[in-house]
Simulated assay, not measured.
Amino acid sequence: MSVHPSSDAPRVLPALSPMLAVIGPPPGPEAEAEYAYETLWNGARVIAHLPGNGSLRLVAGNGMDVTAQYPELQALAALLPGPEAVLDGEIVARDLEGRPSVQRLQQRMSLHHPDAIAHGARDLPVRLMLFDILHLGEPTVHLPYTARRDLLDDLALSGPAVAVPAAWPSMAAEAMEQSTIEGYDGVVAKRLTSPYLPGRRSRDWIKIKHLDSDTNK
């Protein structure tokens, strides 16, 4: 006799590894309009699993579950109670002037005891920057970047601990200037027609660094 799972049971979401970028120069003038440009965060990459039951699971790029290390990011589950979703993003920390701080992020990443994590969430808060959507009720990895970005923007995920950062279609110079102003390392150029390729490094995503970037200060 077959046993059917309860309709109330959360669905098992796909275990997907993050898509990776290559490091290179920006696309030339003839290809610039084929890409959108996003901030290069230089944070801690995570895949966020939201099974639609009010819970959140954060999986690092190495496959480790890091959910318990960042309790303030549970706010995402309240912002997106359903349908079930898998999102790609990066955890970042800022210094007292609001600029990116690798040092503060490393301090948070080193905390594992519950009491230390609770104090860290208060004194060294982090924010989850969401930039792609891999599943929303059904798989979305096959969709082009533009369609996935529209889906993500339509979710209107915004709060003290969660944000969907801006993308600049066909505007490489503007994106590079803004990332310089905000103190980031550079931008990532993402081909507008590209699908999401889990676990693969592809030239559809190009990591473009400022020549004089130094965000570790």
Rank of each mutant, 00 (worst) to 15 (best):
G61C: 12
D154A: 14
K207M: 02
V46D: 02
T193G: 09
E38W: 00
G52N: 05
P51E: 14
S202M: 13
H119D: 14
M1I: 13
H112M: 14
V86C: 02
L152W: 07
G89E: 00
A116H: 08
P29C: 09
L111T: 00
P169L: 08
D153Q: 14
R99Q: 07
P81V: 15
K217L: 15
M129N: 05
L13M: 06
G61Q: 11
A48R: 01
G54I: 15
V86L: 04
G28C: 07
L211P: 00
K217H: 14
A48D: 02
H49S: 09
A167P: 00
R108A: 07
W41V: 02
E138S: 14
L192F: 08
V46P: 01
E84T: 14
M64G: 11
P71A: 08
P27R: 08
A156R: 10
S202C: 06
P169S: 06
G89I: 04
H142E: 10
W205V: 04
Y196D: 04
M176D: 05
G28I: 05
V187E: 03
S55G: 08
V59Y: 05
A147W: 04
V59G: 02
E138V: 11
F131N: 00
G52C: 07
E84V: 13
L50I: 04
Y35N: 02
A93D: 02
G183D: 07
L152Q: 04
P169C: 06
I117Y: 07
P14S: 12
P165Y: 03
E182F: 09
R104T: 10
A36P: 00
A163F: 08
M1T: 07
P18S: 11
H135G: 04
V22S: 05
S158R: 15
G28Y: 04
G82Q: 11
R94M: 12
A75T: 10
W168Q: 03
E97A: 15
Q178C: 10
S202N: 08
I206C: 02
D115F: 14
A172Y: 07
K207Y: 02
Y37S: 01
V46R: 07
A44W: 07
Y145F: 12
S2H: 15
V66P: 08
R57W: 12
M64D: 13
Q107K: 11
D153Y: 13
L152T: 02
H112N: 13
A77P: 00
L96Y: 14
A147D: 05
T146L: 05
L76A: 02
V3T: 15
A121F: 10
D150H: 13
G43I: 13
R148Q: 00
W41F: 11
M109N: 06
S7Q: 15
